[in-house]
Write a protein that binds this DNA or RNA. Structure first.
Lengths: 298, 298
DNA sequence: TGGTTGTTTTTTATCGATAAGAGGAAGCTA
DNA sequence: TAGCTTCCTCTTATCGATAAAAAACAACCA
């Protein structure tokens, strides 16, 4: 049976809105809530029904108002708010990055299914999706080959990344001065300097900033294949860094400085300077990744 | 239930080997056959069992020899030798390229499943696999969005293709003179001139040659992401050209000449000449694709 | 002993069923 | 009559089952 994670997540979201006082007086209409929460009205109604049932809201002649205060115990546990597919993803990445999975290992759908507690179908769908990341290969009627999160992988990944990024940065710098992206870049620049000031406590925030920055550069000259490739990068880094916290603050601090140099290079519109700043940044990103691979490979 | 297409295809293959006299005297061992046909021994045994049952081979004291002649009616029909997954692929591509599918259409798993006569699961797996081609987008809990085989798509595809190919061609030309790939290139060159002579009747053979050529260029400096991208190209072209036979002979003839110029440029190792030849060839490939899109778009 | 063939176990490909979720039609109310 | 809600239908996410195919094991033999 399908999980009701959409409902539970929406419920938690609504509970938080109530608690934070974002929903005072008469509540918005179902349609309005639907828009705010990004789910269907069917789900909104289910949430409202349960909220009413628990007296977190009161319904009087069709008008809804907030009810008793929200308690911590009203929330559904986090584990129940992620779909099976997401669970599979997380467990698989953990399995892969834990490091005890050697390149060349073959992957068994049934075994993973049992291990992760899902039907084989879910595993297979994940593996198909994941195979575009270049770490897996399917051999029909036989199974999957895990090619390994190896040095080769990192080198090939970065070769492409550099090509794409140089291309995008170049095109970015040649936009009209009136392009709104320059403004966005300026905003991002400020966010970087702000983060740098608070680096001691907030260094975790860098990864979000990093993502925004690189995606912004691609925005000037969209290409779906480059975007897709950047999805791979984000995905890999997202999970990889969950497993490699080593030196995180220092790394992020260095990266922020590189970003700032890179942003200024873009603003200068000087092609050579841009290329230098871009290569410098990607070069150290690559080094970081490579170094962590060696740690895993012992 | 799983289809027995692997068995049926293997059976047909074995029947052809018998008919063509590739299997005279004592037949090879099960293991040897297994290797030749690329299936498991389980399947080989099933095939041998059926061959014996139909008296196409005779088994005497553990030694197998050819039996009565193979008739046309012994073969399983082609339709029974492709897996469901392949069927889905073919039907979907037909559905897509037939041209009555507008960009922005949303795709309904259930409807396609009924239309193609498979379970929804099969459709979904195909769509997941296919989504890396940049023509589809998944919206969770909702369905798939068909983005369309449009001009944008072709432009973005070729932008990447040019980047990758210039890079690979450049690296190819800088290989050591002793690299065996030069020899392979020479062989391919001859194949091209041969085909050119027989172009009137054999122009269909070009697509195989085209594939071999572009893959060879990538061989000098392998990168899995570039290989994957080339898979997309091959796939798209494979199906697209089934639907666009217009001017095929002429197009292929022109492409062969471009390939020859390109090959000679590589052999000259002159970077500028290579770049020119490469761009010229990809430019006209792009034009061909674009022109056919316009035809489809009426 | 390396290579055969016969047998059993394991895994993949594929189907069908069902609860959760999305979305539309029609009626309701202010 | 515009926006809301109730009711209903259709679709997706997920499970479990099973025949085909692969792989592992066992027995045999020259």
């Amino acid at each position: 049976m399908r999980t009701d994670t959409v409902y539970k997540k929406a419920f938690n979201r609504a509970a938080s809105m109530l608690r934070d006082g974002q929903l005072t007086g008469d509540l918005p209409s179902e349609n309005e809530l639907r828009r705010q929460m990004g789910v269907s009205r069917t789900t909104v109604r289910k949430v409202l029904g349960e909220l009413a049932h628990r007296e977190l809201i009161a319904e009087r002649s069709g008008v809804r108002t907030a009810g008793r205060p929200v308690e911590d115990s009203d929330y559904y546990p986090d584990a129940e708010t992620t779909s099976r597919a997401k669970h599979v993803e997380q467990q698989f990445m953990e399995w892969m990055l834990r490091g005890d999975t050697r390149p060349g290992t073959s992957i068994n759908e049934l075994e993973l299914a049992r291990q992760f507690g899902v039907a084989t179908n879910g595993i297979r769908e994940f593996l198909i999706r994941f195979s575009r990341f270049g770490l897996l290969e399917k051999r029909p009627n036989t199974g999957w080959l895990f090619k390994g999160f190896t040095e080769d992988f990192a080198l090939e990944l970065f070769e492409i990344r550099v090509m794409f990024e140089l291309r995008s940065a170049h095109l970015f710098s040649r936009q009209a001065d009136t392009s709104p992206l320059w403004e966005k870049l300026a905003v991002l620049k400020i966010a970087h300097t702000e983060l740098l000031k608070r680096i001691e406590s907030r260094f975790h925030d860098f990864s979000g900033l990093d993502n925004r920055f690189h995606r912004l550069i691609n925005e000037a000259s969209p290409n779906r294949f480059i975007d897709d490739f950047y999805d791979i990068i984000s995905f890999i880094f997202h999970y990889h860094y969950q497993w490699n916290k080593h030196d995180e603050k220092q790394r992020n601090q260095a990266a922020i400085l590189e970003h700032l140099a890179y942003i200024e290079a873009l603003e200068s519109r000087d092609p050579e300077r841009i290329e230098r700043a871009c290569r410098a940044h990607l070069g150290s990103a690559r080094e970081t990744l490579m170094r962590s691979l060696i740690v895993f490979d012992e």
